[in-house]
């Protein structure tokens, strides 16, 4: 990383942290969504920092442009009471938060120890992988994975449509 990369990393980390905290803590679900989007931008920035601009743009295109819009739709269609969750009631809410902290921090601590102490051999940043070679991998040795993803997407779409229809019949 050159001299500009560390401040950039810090900025993106801040985006991720701030957005993530917003995403899991804010009462209003739409605000949580905005937090998620901030995080997504942070991650996209990190991709850019790793000289993987294709992934960064795909991240924005798919996550920000499609997935978060879907989530917005979910919030709107379920009329989640002004987009907020019912107030976390007193002690139970506190207990929840505690559990959440444990659930989050335990793996974080363990994995962080692993990451810091068992770091694999590291290379300086490789030159940017060309789009063509990505495509060759995708259509060559990993065509099956590619096809499986499309099958998964198709199945998800069909499933979603089916569920939607079922809902209509149930009415």
């Amino acid at each position: 990383m050159d001299f500009l990369a560390y401040p950039a990393y810090g900025l993106y980390l801040l985006l991720i942290l701030g957005g993530g905290l917003g995403a899991i803590l804010s009462q209003s679900l739409v605000r949580a969504l905005m937090g998620l989007i901030l995080t997504l931008f942070g991650v996209a920035g990190m991709y850019l920092l790793m000289a993987a601009p294709f992934l960064a743009f795909m991240q924005i295109l798919i996550y920000v442009g499609a997935v978060s819009v879907l989530i917005f739709f979910a919030i709107m269609l379920t009329r989640s009471s002004d987009g907020g969750e019912a107030g976390r009631e007193g002690s139970r809410g506190l207990g929840r938060m505690l559990l959440g902290l444990i659930a989050g921090l335990t793996p974080l601590a363990i994995l962080a120890w692993v990451v810091v102490h068992k770091a694999p051999t590291e290379l300086p940043l490789k030159p940017e992988a060309s789009l063509a070679s990505l495509g060759q991998y995708l259509t060559g040795p990993y065509a099956l994975a590619f096809e499986l993803i499309s099958v998964a997407l198709l199945a998800a779409m069909a499933g979603a449509v089916l569920l939607g229809f079922e809902r209509r019949r149930a009415r």
């Binding site: 294709f54 743009f57 924005i60 442009g65």
Partner: peptide, 26 residues
């Protein structure tokens, strides 16, 4: 001169929807 310029434009023009969402919801 980004060599993924087209992708960049497509990605960033998609953000407008979110702006409309935020405005509409807010």
């Amino acid at each position: 001169d980004v060599n993924l310029g087209l992708l960049l434009i497509l990605a960033f023009s998609g953000i407008n929807v979110l702006a409309l969402c935020a405005a509409g919801w807010g």
